[in-house]
Design a protein around this nucleic acid. Structure first.
Lengths: 125, 125
DNA sequence: ACAGGACATCGACATGCGTCGATGAAGAGG
DNA sequence: CCTCTTCATCGACGCATGTCGATGTCCTGT
């Protein structure tokens, strides 16, 4: 629904950037944004997808490589991959007939940093 | 449905303990357990609850302290606190008429550690 | 004993979400 | 040109979940 069409594939910037969570009370907007990203990860199928892609050769895999291990239909896998991509956790690259999905390196770490009380120390890169 | 009834209030031990996620493919059971804990956190109201309790004096708060800032009804807040408690993220302590909720120190960090590719290095304690 | 406050539970409602089969679009190959 | 494979989208179904008002339980204070 929304207004009309969301053409941008990644409206959410992976995470609310930097909210310690245990440091200061979250605003309603920050909580909603963070929850949206967390909801993308809080699913068994999507967790396994992230894990499968991460451990795959080259850290990238196509849909046909994932339907088997997951035991889900191709449309369902495609749907989950879209959710993860829109959450900023995966990138899609079309190579000929195949679509290869690669996980965004820093995305999961950023999400983890928000949850933990942290002290990130230094910028990783 | 599961089998029948889960009488134990905390069936999930906060997290699947130690699953790098980006290290080896998750099993269906591990993914389900991890998703169950993540689902408890993937909610705006519950994220704000965690944040409010963490930043509260003594890192513990009663229900009456939380309904106001959240803007939700008392039964709803009580429900969310129950979900967080059953996920192993909060502990409930009844003091007289009031019920004080405190967040389990290591729980969020453990969850964050599973998400990030990490390198735990040393036990944080 | 009685009244009042704090919290949990119950039942109900609306919405969201995961899953599938069927169909459509895009490219590779004979 | 035609066919086959790969993937995305559509429509639909059923279950899970967030929210509330009403009610019940426990404790405190008069």
């Amino acid at each position: 629904m929304a207004t009309s069409r969301t053409l941008e594939p990644t409206p959410a910037p992976a995470t609310a950037c930097c909210a310690p969570l245990t440091g200061a009370p979250l605003s309603a907007e920050a909580a909603a944004a963070l929850a949206r990203t967390l909801k993308a990860v809080a699913d068994p199928a999507r967790l396994r997808l992230l894990s499968l892609i991460a451990t795959h050769e080259g850290a990238s895999a196509c849909v046909c490589d994932l339907t088997g291990p997951l035991g889900l239909s191709q449309p369902t896998v495609s749907h989950h991959l879209k959710v993860l991509t829109e959450a900023g956790l995966l990138t899609r690259e079309k190579r000929g007939t195949w679509a290869y999905f690669t996980l965004v390196p820093r995305a999961l770490d950023a999400l983890a940093a928000v949850l933990s009380s942290r002290t990130p120390g230094n910028a990783p890169a």
